[in-house]
Design a protein around this nucleic acid. Sequence first.
DNA 1: TAGACAGTTAGACAATTTTCTAATTATCTA
DNA 2: TAGATAATTAGAAAATTGTCTAACTGTCTA
Lengths: 88, 88
Amino acid sequence: MGDVWKALADPSRREILVLLRKRDMNAGEIAENFDMSKPSVSNHLNILKQADLVSAEKRGQNVVYSLKTGVFEEIMRLLMSLTDKQED
Amino acid sequence: MGDVWKALADPSRREILVLLRKRDMNAGEIAENFDMSKPSVSNHLNILKQADLVSAEKRGQNVVYSLKTGVFEEIMRLLMSLTDKQED
DNA sequence: TAGACAGTTAGACAATTTTCTAATTATCTA
DNA sequence: TAGATAATTAGAAAATTGTCTAACTGTCTA
């Protein structure tokens, strides 16, 4: 299981998540939004997948990526616990 | 203004934040909690400061660090917006 | 089934990041 | 004021990360 925080550290990867918020997209559609080679985007998608922030489903010759929101809750929990001093 | 996400990407820095959740600490006290040279810790503290995640106040020959929770809200807002699909 | 298309893998390279030791600055106290 | 203590700055080395091109795999369709 990859590092969620490291995954979120890169601005391109955060932008991918924002894109996927609107709708599921395949790798090519995602890549169109970036001034970057396709393998680079593929690499970012892989890091997001390992961090469990997106899921990938092969559909024909495309791979459709979707946002996975489950992990966010965990992150938010940690952030909230930092916000509330002295708890724990 | 430094990058908050990059600041949060490092596990040692996140641990520093958790330490400061309990109470304010000076640089030396923080460093005691890590198997790392003092300059390295100092570097991490500087990155956290630039990201506005901690504040530093010189008190005598010590520098006391405190958690700054303001920025978390911004992060949480972004995370929440990702959680709620299709909004915006 | 041959060629085109979508996507990933492999390998190399450049940039960034983390860490160290040594040196420096600032403050306290005997 | 001299020496000790707290912390940072400087500069270098090692590790990690992001990016590229070239090559490969799998799927579709004419």
